[in-house]
Simulated assay, not measured.
Amino acid sequence: MHGEYKVPGGKLVVVDVDVEGEGEDAALANVVVSGDFFLEPAEAILEIRGALDGLPAATSVGALTMAVTNAMGADAVMVGFSAESVAIAVRRALGHATSWGDHKFDVIHDEPREPNLQMALDEVLSQGVAAGTRPPTLRIWEWERNAVVIGSFQSVRNEIDLEGAAKHDVTVVRRVSGGGAMFIQPGNTITYSISVPSSLVEGLTFEQSYAFLDDWVLGALREVGIEATYVPLNDIASPSGKIAGAAQKRYAAGAVLHHVTMAYDIDANAMLEVLRIGREKMSDKGTKSANKRVDPLRSQTGMTREAIIDAFLAHFASRYATVQSAVTDAELVEAERLTEEKFGTPEWLALVP
């Protein structure tokens, strides 16, 4: 069996392994670990292999990581990879996880839709991926109106100045994922969602999965001239400051929803009148002014929003197998039902008053 794991910002780890025995007696055998990483002393690779040979095939990522760590010793130096990345590659080899190359992605550049319907579509598409009725999907959003999207656990009254929202004709909605509030203006943000099977992030912590699912867009940003980096837990930044925030929802049915909003040309004054940004949060971000918290893509690239989106889609297609797609009529009907029964209701918005 063969498994690969590309460490975000690091190197490729490859594991080839046999499984001997069946059921509870199944064990790893003939393990070979390879890749373009660096390891000193070189002989430590043999210690890694020896630590994995004979372990039960059902061994968890955590236990595999501990076995590799204990075998390496304190003097070994791993560059571009880690004991945990070896463990993840083992799990991928055993078929407990999938890789980007195992999937063909539907790509949707959607039409403008009202905010609550956007929230519902994210849920419908992700549940479709979990059920196997839809392939993994990348969806670029278009917004029909101004909006603030708050995290599933945020308080409306703590986050939103309702008078400011009314003044700027902003619709406030609540999404299914955690994280912070996102200020949206049509044409001034780039928002996308990736809905994937849980197998793609199997064995990854939440923090690792954020970096893993954001890796492609970091490459796309670099192609348009932005030296973007992942900032734990859920931000994407450049040397000039934060440019995007991500949020994630893991569905028990077997899918992960990962969505990102990037600032293209945000009206910071309007944002300040709508969002209540606490001093503690500002201090945590290391900034003195909310106007400087989000650095627009427009100022760093000089490109139109449409050109940036085209570049993103081209980069995604250069890395993974894709097919152009659209929201189906059935999915739209289901999203409209969810909007009426859940996302568009006062009860959902006031889930945390």
Rank of each mutant, 00 (worst) to 15 (best):
A83E: 14
A181Q: 02
P115L: 07
R157P: 08
V79A: 00
E111F: 11
I88K: 08
A93F: 12
M182F: 02
R175W: 12
A89S: 11
R113S: 02
E142Q: 14
W143N: 06
D169G: 03
A87L: 02
H168V: 09
M78F: 14
A71G: 01
G151A: 08
V173I: 05
V90D: 02
T137L: 13
E123T: 15
D110K: 11
L138K: 09
K167E: 10
N146H: 09
D102T: 03
L121V: 15
R174S: 02
I140E: 05
G101K: 15
G95S: 04
A74R: 06
V107P: 05
F81S: 06
S177C: 06
E159D: 03
E144S: 15
L138F: 12
G95R: 10
W143Q: 10
D75Y: 12
S152H: 08
D161S: 01
S82L: 04
V170C: 02
S85R: 07
F183K: 01
T171G: 00
S126Q: 08
D106A: 15
V124H: 11
A166C: 01
E163Q: 05
G73E: 10
H96P: 00
G95N: 05
V156D: 10
S155K: 07
D102S: 07
V129F: 07
N116P: 04
I88L: 04
G180D: 01
H103Y: 05
G95L: 03
D106E: 15
I184R: 12
M78A: 14
S126Y: 08
L94Q: 12
V107S: 04
V149F: 06
L162A: 02
V148F: 01
Q118A: 05
G95E: 03
G128L: 00
L162P: 00
V172R: 04
